[in-house]
Nucleic acid binder design. Structure first.
Lengths: 103, 103
DNA sequence: CGCGTATATTCCGATCGAGCTATATTGCTG
DNA sequence: CAGCAATATAGCTCGATCGGAATATACGCG
């Protein structure tokens, strides 16, 4: 799990994940969207693969990548015990809004 | 937000946050619990401070640190659009369990 | 004010990681 | 099989960062 945070620490990798969020995409699509050289993107994809954050499907020369969300779920679980710290204030905010609406 | 992930990428810093989760603590307490040298811990605390993940209260020579959760809430928000990806399968698991219970 | 305690800052050495260019691999097509 | 397309790997450089040792700062007390 240590490594999941490290992998997500890089903005290019988060951008790749965002580009894969809706549907699977071939590498060439990512090369188009990002301003990084193709080998750089392939390296990021390798890191994401080894972290279990993406999976690949081979189709002739193309490799279709898609998000594999389990490590994200682990991050979510790590956050869980902290969540009440900000939900408390969110709840307060909601109550305030409810009050205003109730007027 | 980019930096929040980078800050959390370090296991020592996550451990510090975990130690502060329940209640505020002075630096000496962290030095006791962790196996890092005091200056190293002070340096991590500086990084956490500058990322807005902790706040300090001065009390004579002691500095009491506590978690400041807002950056964690931003991480949580970044995760949000991915959340359905694993909640879907969790839901499926729950339905399976409900079926079994229903027998 | 001098000393002890508590914490921060500075200055290393070593390692890691992101990006690039050049090259290798794999698969299709004529 | 030659050649092109799509992607991966290798080798390199530069800058960032972790950790520690030494030192500085801040505060209270006698």
């Amino acid at each position: 799990m240590t490594s999941t945070f490290a992998v997500l620490a890089d903005p290019s990798r988060r951008e790749i994940l965002d580009l894969l969020r809706e549907e699977e995409r071939p590498v060439g699509y990512l090369v188009q969207q990002l301003t990084l050289a193709q080998p750089t993107i392939s390296k990021h994809l390798k890191v994401l693969r080894e972290a279990g954050l993406v999976e690949v499907r081979t189709d002739a020369q193309k490799r279709w990548y898609r998000v594999s969300p389990q490590p994200l779920a682990e991050i979510d679980a790590w956050l869980a015990p902290y969540r009440r710290m900000w939900e408390k204030s969110l709840d307060a905010l909601e109550r305030r809004l409810d009050e205003i609406e109730g007027d």
